[in-house]
């Protein structure tokens, strides 16, 4: 009985970083969909992407492994590849955020608002004018 309980506990907590990934992913995704403020949408998108970064970083970790730098005393190295991959993905994420934020600046100039519902109302008015 005791062993089943510890098994479940180990299953739930032993991979806690993946729980963090799932929570962040869903939180970020929710913010992207639910918020009407464009800046908040970009923030949500960032949280969503960050969850993937953590997932990749967790993949690379090997229990007992050291940092992947050649060292005489090392017996086991962590896998550096996922970390390198996610560096690339972080760069892509930064580029996306920068582009998103600069688009928001242009939208603010053009519409005078960063609230999606107000912009939508203005756009629809334009659609009807045409």
């Amino acid at each position: 009985m005791d062993s089943i309980f510890t098994d479940i506990l180990a299953g739930a907590l032993g991979r806690y970083n993946y729980w963090v990934v799932i929570v962040l992913m869903m939180a970020g995704f929710y913010v992207v969909i639910a918020s009407t403020n464009l800046v908040k949408k970009i923030v949500g998108l960032n949280i969503f992407q960050t969850s993937v970064f953590i997932m990749y970083i967790s993949i690379g970790k090997i229990s007992g492994g050291t940092a992947p730098i050649v060292w005489a005393n090392a017996e086991l190295y962590s896998n550096p590849l996922p970390h390198v991959l996610i560096l690339t993905a972080i760069v892509v994420g930064v580029a996306t955020t920068a582009l998103g934020l600069s688009l928001i600046m242009r939208i603010k100039h053009a519409y005078g608002s960063v609230e999606e519902d107000e912009i939508l109302a203005l756009s629809q008015a334009e659609d009807e004018d045409e």
Partner: peptide, 20 residues
């Protein structure tokens, strides 16, 4: 058209979700 900006933004959000 200024609606190009919102179209681009909408595509950015959906495209990034897709890529992620």
């Amino acid at each position: 058209d200024r609606r190009a900006l919102t179209a681009s933004f909408q595509y950015l959000i959906m495209g990034t979700i897709g890529a992620t």
